[in-house]
Write a protein that binds this DNA or RNA. Structure first.
Length: 891
RNA sequence: AGGCGCGUAGCUCAGUGGGAGAGCACUACCUCGACACGGUAGGGGUCGGCGGUUCAAUCCCGCCCGUGCCUACCA
């Protein structure tokens, strides 16, 4: 008895089930539970608006893992939240103000407080949007613990970290070359710089006795050092420190010769002049050799007075004019207009990077100042140690080498930003007095806080644990951070987290920095396993990009069209950890049909079984068909468990889908539709179906929860117990039914070939010494599913005199009465088959004669091959006879 | 320039040292007690190329070609 709709309607069901989960206070983890903890910190999406498909895949993978552990007896906590994404968020809001209010420089017009208020309002709004999008995906996270990287307790952790590092001399302030973005007027970290292949003219100029190459003539005003490789024989007569006079852009300059290994003798002329203030490499040379550094370009990207008549010009404007001037002076030697190099841009929505030297705050990654495993080592060394020693495992493992390579080349981390939105640097100045503290100095009069804010990744690096401290305790500054941690039940129960699941594209930005900060602050790892997923791509394998809206798949839009369950399946199928995934509508459509199939199977079962049918496994099983099903189901349970353990989420989805659709629906449900069904049949149906939807629940939580509801169980499916393997084994029955299935398929094929539609009932005969008793036992089943009038079963080989249309399989000859057969085609098919089978036998016999094979191949393989040869020879005999018969029949 | 992936049916992808797989698409048939968003059956592949290891290679190794990504101190 059921009133379920004929077609699965995701929209209504998802709404209803969401409410059900929410009203039950579902998914709220209990810090005082006896169960072992399983924790995932959700990577916080930027609080700038919309969830994209990359978030969707993250949500699905994490939800699968969380639901699985929850059902498997763990106290599962999945903690959600959002990130303040400093640069991106501030940029978005400033742009809005510019466009909507026509204010060209909002920061100077509105002031710091007003801007911060505007951003905060904007963030509130977009957090709400994100929250509802996360829910729409079916994510079973704990909203009572939602966090934001700007929460007060997180701010305390940020300040604690800064203070401690400052005291350990790991944080220092100094003039260093940084990636300056003149457009957004802030610097960004090395990782936030995006390099794009760009075509720029490459000029060669005469500089005294040398020829030097550059793409940036506008930086060359102050150049007074020529650098070459110490081993470059062409320039061996010039000595390090030699000076000479030469004509340059604005008159004569005195130049000094510098030898440095960084110069590549094979590049250009092997000689270059340097501009330490505006280039990372040049800065390095200047530092090593103690050379002067001089600014040429200001923070707006305009030339300084050193450029004389070019002062005040923008770079793009000045460049051709400078080249022209040099050309007029006869100093331009060559212009290569086809030259391509990779140019730096601000990946956080800004423009071209113009390196500058600035006073910035840095974290020293090389100083051995951290106690880790009873040794004092550097942050860099910790980063390497935790992965190398296996404290943290990367999945897939191949990212280890990428990770090590990145860490080994890591430079000091520049953590200050010249923007307003973010955690303000906890450093205070009063004249010459500098103070670093958790709270503002009191009284504050005369003090001024450092205007800069911290890199967003500084705060998100603390995410796994700063989110678990008790917000109330964090307000009490009489308690040390250690006290707070010790008294926070969530931290005690749920940290370290179990799996960090995120895209491989932020391995460095975020994952590595979490490891760095957490090992430093807590002497513990933030997580045990890092599962990295790939990028979602278009059908053509292209990146989905905002600049090409047609290429972008919006998860909410897909949920509307196909349902959340369908989107979920599509996002995990056909991919593995670290592997990119192509997503397109057909994929989601086929997943949608699967959800509909589940729905209809459930609908049928609910229509068939009486109310109150037990959903537990029957203690004893009589029906051989049920034995076949339960045997397969048992294998599936085992297989699912082991594959989930090895993170093969896509395989699990495939296997569940194929068992459900093929074995369960196409075969078992059809076989079970017998006129004399028993109570046992009902129970098996209920048990097998509910077991299957328990496992499927990880992938398609909505449709399965909705169907489960109809079984009127005390607990929701999300909280029910994960299937255990069954206490019985039915291997023999399983194989017997496989023979029956094969016989049905074979007879169906014969009808098809004889052009006899399923509407016409015919007679068939099965000849077999080996299987006659099995056939007799299931005679009615074969008659029903092969749509027969009658079935004759003969316990003997087929009679060569009795020529019939038929086929050979499993030591059985199946035949039907048929006249309208395309004999010629059938004979051709048989001949083709004969050829390939006999070549197999030939090949195998040759193999058997090879002495190496007998002596070296495992016994099992040899035995199997021998058996295969015997079987295939039997088949060949049958085919040979068939060809003769068919030839006769065709006349 | 270096590193890492990928190359298997028309498309998207599994796969294993022992006779090539799934889904979609395609063809034919079917209103058979849930589902036509379904069922039944079928066609389709020198597993990128060339060498090597092995009794045996789509799988392991080397080189090459194509393709994607990441890193770099590309003046």
């Amino acid at each position: 008895m059921t009133s379920l709709a004929k077609t699965y309607e995701p929209k209504g069901v998802e709404k209803e089930i969401s409410k059900l989960w929410e009203s039950a206070g579902a998914f709220r983890a209990d810090a005082f539970s006896e169960k072992p903890a399983f924790t995932i910190s959700m990577p916080p999406p930027n609080a700038t608006g919309q969830l994209h498909v990359g978030h969707a895949v993250m949500l699905v993978l994490e939800d699968i893992l969380i639901r699985w552990h929850r059902m498997n007896g763990y106290e599962a906590l999945w903690l959600p939240g959002t990130d303040h994404a400093a640069i991106a968020t501030e940029n978005v809001v400033l742009q809005q103000i510019k466009e909507q209010e026509g204010i060209t420089d909002p920061r100077s017009v509105l002031g710091r407080d007003e801007i911060l208020k505007r951003i905060a309002d904007y963030v509130k709004n977009s957090q709400g949007t994100i929250r509802s999008q996360v829910k729409a995906m079916g994510s079973s996270c704990d909203w009572s613990r939602e966090r934001y990287t700007m929460d007060h307790q997180l701010n305390r952790c940020v300040n604690e970290a800064f203070l401690r590092m400052y005291k350990d001399n790991l944080i220092y302030r100094g003039p260093r070359i940084v990636n300056w973005d003149p457009h957004l007027k802030t610097n960004v970290s090395d990782d936030e710089v995006e390099r794009k292949s760009t075509k720029s003219p490459f000029y060669t100029f005469q500089y005294g006795p040398f020829q030097i190459g550059t793409v940036r003539p506008e930086t060359k005003f102050g150049d007074k050092y020529v650098v070459m490789h110490p081993d470059d024989k062409r320039y061996s007569k010039h000595k390090h420190g030699d000076t000479f006079e030469c004509e340059w852009i604005n008159g004569m300059v005195t130049a000094t010769i510098i030898k440095d290994n960084v110069v590549d003798p094979k590049f250009g002329t092997g000689v270059m002049t340097i501009t330490p203030w505006h280039d990372h490499v040049d800065f390095g040379i200047a530092e090593r050799n103690g050379l002067d550094k001089e600014p040429v370009i200001d923070f707006e990207g305009k030339l300084l007075p050193i450029a004389n008549e070019f002062a005040g010009m923008g770079i793009e404007e000045a460049r051709p004019k400078i080249v022209e001037k040099l050309q007029k002076k006869g100093l331009l030697v060559d212009t290569d207009s086809k030259y391509t190099h990779s140019k730096s841009f601000n990946s956080r929505g800004g423009g071209a990077i113009e390196p500058q030297i600035r006073e910035q705050w840095f974290i020293d990654v090389n100083k051995p100042a951290v106690t880790w495993k009873d040794r004092k080592i550097s942050l860099k060394e910790i980063l390497i140690d935790v992965v190398r020693s296996g404290n943290i495992k990367l999945v897939p493992e191949r990212f280890n080498s990428t990770y090590f390579h990145w860490v080994e080349n890591l430079q000091d981390w520049c953590i200050s930003r010249q923007i307003w939105w973010g955690h303000r640097i906890p450093v205070y100045y009063n004249g010459n007095d500098t103070r670093v503290s958790l709270k503002k100095p009191e009284p504050f009069k005369g003090w001024e806080q450092d205007p800069d804010t911290l890199d967003t990744w500084f705060s998100s690096a603390l995410w796994t644990w700063s989110t678990l401290i008790d917000p109330e305790l964090a307000k009490d500054y009489s308690l040390s951070l250690e006290d707070v941690l010790e008294r926070s039940p969530d931290f005690q129960k749920f940290h370290p987290t179990d799996i960090m699941e995120t895209g491989y594209d932020i391995l460095f930005f975020w994952v590595a920095r979490m490891i760095l900060m957490t090992t430093y602050m807590l002497h513990a790892v933030p997580f045990k396993t890092v599962y990295l997923h790939g990028l979602i791509r278009t059908r053509e394998g292209k990146k989905m990009s905002k600049s090409d809206p047609k290429s972008v798949i919006d998860p909410l839009d897909s949920i509307k069209k196909f349902g959340a369950d369908a989107l979920r399946i599509a996002l995990v199928s056909g991919t593995g950890p670290g592997q990119d995934l192509r997503l397109y509508p057909e994929k989601m459509e086929s997943s949608r049909r699967f959800t509909n199939k589940i729905w209809n199977a459930g609908r049928y079962i609910l229509m068939t079984i009486p109310d109150g049918t037990s959903i537990t496994a029957p203690i004893t099983v009589n029906s051989e068909l049920a034995k076949w099903l339960l045997h397969g189901l048992n294998d599936l349970i085992k297989d699912t468990q082991s594959r989930l353990e090895s993170h093969r989420l896509s395989d699990v989805a495939d296997n569940l889908k194929s068992f459900f659709w093929g074995d369960f629906c196409d075969w078992y449900l059809e076989m079970d539709k017998s006129p004399n069904r028993t109570n046992e049949n009902d129970q098996v149906l209920a048990f097998a179906f509910t077991t299957l939807i328990k496992m499927l629940h990880l992938y398609v939580p909505f449709v399965t929860e909705a169907l489960w509801k109809e079984f009127k169980q005390p607990k929701m499916l999300a909280f029910s117990e994960w299937p255990k393997t069954l206490p019985y084994q039915f291997k023999a029955s399983y194989e017997r039914i496989e023979v029956i299935k094969e016989s049905i398929s074979q007879i169906r094929t014969l009808r098809e070939k004889a052009n006899i539609g399923l509407e016409i009932k015919i007679s068939a005969t099965l000849y077999s010494k080996a299987n006659a008793s099995i056939f007799k036992e299931h005679q009615n089943l074969i008659i029903r599913l092969a749509r027969l009038k009658e079935l004759n079963i003969k316990e003997k080989e087929s009679d060569p005199l009795n020529k019939l249309f038929g086929t050979y399989f499993h030591e059985t000859y199946a035949s039907i009465d048929a006249t309208f057969v395309d004999w010629k085609k059938e004979i051709e098919t048989l001949q083709k088959k004969f050829k390939s089978e006999s070549s197999f036998v030939e090949k195998s016999k040759k193999k058997l004669k090879h002495p190496g094979f007998i002596s070296k191949a495992p016994e099992k393989i040899v035995k199997e091959l021998k058996k295969k040869i015997i079987d295939t020879e039997k088949k060949l005999n049958a085919i040979r006879q068939q060809i003769i018969d068919f030839k006769e029949l065709s006349n």
